[in-house]
Amino acid sequence: MAAVKVKRNELPKLLEGAKAAGYDVFAPARAAEGWAFAPYEGGDVDLDGYLLTTASVKGFVLPQLEAFLSYDNDDGRLAAAPEGKRLLVGVRPCDARALALVDKVYLDRGFRDPLYLARRDNTVLVVWACGRPAPTCFCTSVGGGPGDATGADVMAYEAGDDLLLEASSAKGEGFLKAVKFGEASDAELDEAKATYAKVAEAMTPLWDLEAARPKLYENFEAEAWEEVASRCVSCGACTFVCPSCHCFDVVDEGKHGRGRRVRFWDACTQSPFTLHASGHNPRERKAQRYRQRVLHKFYYFHDNWGENLCVGCGRCVVACPVNVDIREAVSLVAGAD
């Protein structure tokens, strides 16, 4: 289908239409700390100064904590799959790409997670191509880009006063078909995409991962890991803000035989993550744990799925209280002798 052309100031009309069609609509809004996806309550969507939300969109499909089972003594019941369509506008390409990566683990590994699947199916991601990457952005160094459509349902390209919307999934197509706006010509779309390709070109590649990847693994025992993790305080902030970190812990919460089994985000950078019941811990030291995080992103996941598990959003760089920088870590370890 052809791309849709919407005037930038017609965006509220589009979103009101989506609400009328039954979507819960979320858009980036200024929050106490940076930006956050908030329920759209009408009016202009002011994205002036917006680049990334502080927390990624991960929480929309993989809540920070969710009860997947409730129990009453010996009777357990699985949580019902969540219902309700959601439309997220202003998602960045890195976040959408991250969800496409998490999909592999939650849907393609063998076990299809029903709660995750329902949320993924119910959520339409309208992805805003990036015109002005931040100094901490490095998507082009890990396989993504400011106009990358991986994981997006609809791609939105800004072109002057216009917004060009192109479907990039069946879900996105379904949404756009119901939208009554003008069509964008192929030429307009190509021109818009070309401007984002220029944005991508202007981003300096950090490293050549094809060369760095095997070095990271070869240098498994390198002293450099100790150096990169020396400041790490094992707080886990990097994993929580990361859109592609997807590990979780499970705990039973309840009293007197009744309660719920919850899963919640966990962090490989924290020591209890791998602590055995015997007291043995294969990743006892923070350097081992930070190495796990970096190698999972750039080597292990790539070994299993052919993609990097890092999307280059730079949130971990921003969130780290002690300035551990994954970009430097890769350079340093890959460059170690």
Binding site: D113, H246, F248, V250, D266, T274, L295
Partner: peptide
């Protein structure tokens, strides 16, 4: 091998040895 595990189906992320997951 034994490893700390939660999900047992390759999702929760803690039982890996390099790219291999002990659970799956």
């Amino acid at each position: 091998l034994e490893m700390r595990m939660k999900c047992g189906v390759g999702m929760c992320g803690r039982c890996n040895i390099g790219p291999k997951y002990v659970c799956v």
